[in-house]
Amino acid sequence: MSYTPAIPLGGYAGWALLTRTRSAQMEAFVSSPTLQRDEAYFRDRIGGISTAEDLVADRRLLSVALGAFGLEADIDSKYFIRKVLEDGTLDPDALANKLADKRYLEFSKAFGFGDYATPRTKLSDFPDAILEGYKTRSFEAAVGEQSDEMRLALNAQRELAALAGRSLTDDAGWFSVMGSAPLREVFQTALGLPPAFAAIDLDQQLATFRDRAESVLGSSEISMFGDPGKIDELIRVFLVRAEAQSNSTVYSAQSTALTLLQSAGARGGLLSRLV
């Protein structure tokens, strides 16, 4: 039986509580029998995997491998995953380099099937690296079953801290945000941008992200997230706006239902007078 994270509150209050209890909850989660069995199986079998074909043929290993990068939804897309892995990352025309979602690039790079004569699965420290990601992402997924906004916030906190530590130009940093569906959702919500915004020209998106970030967060530079306080500020704005949107949707639905009931009541009263 798996441990279910406790998320008793929504919004920023719920995030503050999760932040205080996360270490204890994470420890309980990774100690669950399900996670322990997954870890043991991966450690025992991954060293014998030499090709992408071998990996996709073992659904249990593939589940851990994909889960470490937040790609678990692709578990049944075996041909696609095999192509991503076999192409590698060194060739500019490799599939992973063409995909907007750069999680596939990191996934292919981590395994090295298309980049090296000997894949990284043969390295002694490889299981530790993949399992660390798997445990973290699995906990986030479990949190997401209680609150998708909390999962997005956890992902943003982790990804932005990692992004700030990379040697990237400001443009490249913003494009990394734009190429990550979970991060994009956090930024679009926090910066007050509609879902349709993703359909406009990329250069326009970049300029708009910068302008809105300057207005909402006080800086247009992606390097601002080297300050953990800026990450927390982004998450706070995201959660507050997401909660407001949710409440607005609920209110709108309730208002529509009330209008329909009132309309039905009025018609019923009119019919009774006519009869």
Score class of each variant (00 low, 15 high):
65 A>W: 02
6 A>S: 14
265 G>I: 05
251 Y>C: 04
141 A>I: 06
159 E>F: 02
68 A>W: 01
5 P>A: 03
261 L>V: 12
72 E>L: 09
107 F>E: 01
108 S>G: 01
210 R>P: 07
150 M>A: 10
21 T>G: 04
163 L>W: 01
200 I>L: 07
159 E>A: 13
11 G>W: 05
213 A>S: 15
21 T>I: 11
49 I>W: 01
117 A>C: 03
206 L>H: 10
5 P>V: 00
214 E>P: 03
187 F>D: 00
198 A>N: 09
5 P>I: 02
25 Q>A: 10
198 A>R: 14
242 A>G: 06
80 F>H: 04
148 D>V: 12
272 S>W: 05
81 I>M: 10
114 G>W: 01
91 D>K: 12
51 T>Q: 04
218 G>T: 13
166 R>K: 15
36 Q>H: 11
103 R>K: 09
104 Y>F: 15
190 A>G: 04
252 S>N: 13
258 L>G: 05
103 R>N: 12
64 V>Q: 06
13 A>R: 14
25 Q>M: 15
264 A>L: 10
118 T>C: 02
11 G>P: 01
42 F>H: 02
38 D>W: 08
32 S>W: 01
102 K>E: 12
67 G>K: 05
270 L>C: 09
124 S>W: 07
20 R>N: 08
222 I>T: 03
113 F>L: 01
135 K>R: 15
146 Q>L: 10
265 G>E: 10
84 V>F: 07
128 D>K: 12
69 F>W: 10
172 A>F: 02
227 D>E: 14
156 A>C: 10
20 R>M: 13
110 A>W: 09
133 G>E: 05
208 T>C: 05
205 Q>E: 00
45 R>P: 00
8 P>H: 02
231 I>Q: 00
133 G>H: 06
224 M>A: 11
43 R>Y: 08
39 E>I: 06
151 R>F: 03
178 M>A: 10
50 S>A: 13
107 F>L: 07
129 A>P: 03
175 F>G: 00
193 L>P: 04
135 K>F: 15
227 D>I: 11
41 Y>I: 13
260 L>E: 13
71 L>Y: 05
215 S>A: 15
136 T>P: 01
32 S>K: 04
150 M>F: 14
39 E>F: 11
271 L>H: 08
260 L>S: 11
189 T>A: 15
275 V>C: 03
135 K>D: 07
12 Y>I: 13
167 S>T: 12
111 F>W: 08
176 S>K: 06
153 A>Q: 01
76 D>H: 14
23 S>F: 04
4 T>I: 15
79 Y>H: 07
182 P>D: 03
137 R>S: 11
44 D>T: 13
183 L>W: 01
15 W>S: 05
191 L>S: 03
136 T>R: 14
155 N>L: 15
232 D>I: 02
240 V>R: 10
104 Y>R: 07
10 G>T: 12
19 T>P: 02
48 G>C: 12
163 L>C: 10
123 L>V: 09
61 L>S: 01
39 E>W: 06
69 F>R: 09
207 A>Q: 14
96 A>I: 03
245 Q>T: 08
194 P>M: 03
100 A>Q: 14
26 M>L: 15
152 L>S: 09
88 G>F: 06
240 V>M: 10
180 S>R: 09
240 V>G: 03
19 T>C: 08
59 R>Q: 08
131 L>R: 06
248 S>G: 15
230 K>A: 11
117 A>F: 09
98 K>T: 08
157 Q>W: 05
180 S>E: 01
173 G>V: 00
186 V>W: 02
71 L>D: 02
32 S>L: 04
